[in-house]
């Protein structure tokens, strides 16, 4: 991830992901705000809408990229040089856990929606 996201590519991906988040977050909030969700099943129904689900999974990836570049920059600027590697490792581990958890949640949404006959 570090080699793929360095220099200009990191700069570009941070901006691309920022634009995506700027579009997705308000739309997602508006979408969820205007859906009448009264039960867990209804919520699963909303979250498993194909377009919304795909956009949300894409957001998980782009948010991870955005967070990696942003926090990595802060670490490179502020962390003492001998500990930069340690901090970057901690960040990568944390993001990997978060992405894994988020993707698992997304998968469970599909499974539950399928079991509930929502798909």
């Amino acid at each position: 991830m570090t080699r793929l996201l360095t220099g200009f590519r990191a700069h570009l991906w941070q901006r691309v992901s920022a634009v995506w988040l700027l579009v997705y977050v308000p739309l997602a909030v508006a979408y969820l705000a205007f859906q009448p969700v009264s039960s867990h099943a209804a919520l699963m129904g909303v979250l498993s809408q194909p377009l919304f689900w795909v956009a949300s999974v894409l957001t998980i990836g782009l948010l991870a990229v955005h967070a990696w570049v942003g926090v990595r920059d802060a670490i490179l600027d502020y962390a003492p040089r001998p500990r930069v590697g340690l901090w970057l490792m901690a960040l990568a581990t944390m993001l990997a856990f978060w992405v894994g958890f988020a993707l698992y949640a997304a998968w469970r949404i599909l499974v539950e929606a399928n079991e509930g006959g929502l798909l």
Binding site: G7, F8, A10, L76
Partner: peptide
């Protein structure tokens, strides 16, 4: 110049 330090430390 395409390097995380050389150019892209500019904020």
């Amino acid at each position: 110049l395409d390097d995380v330090y050389k150019t892209f430390r500019c904020r």
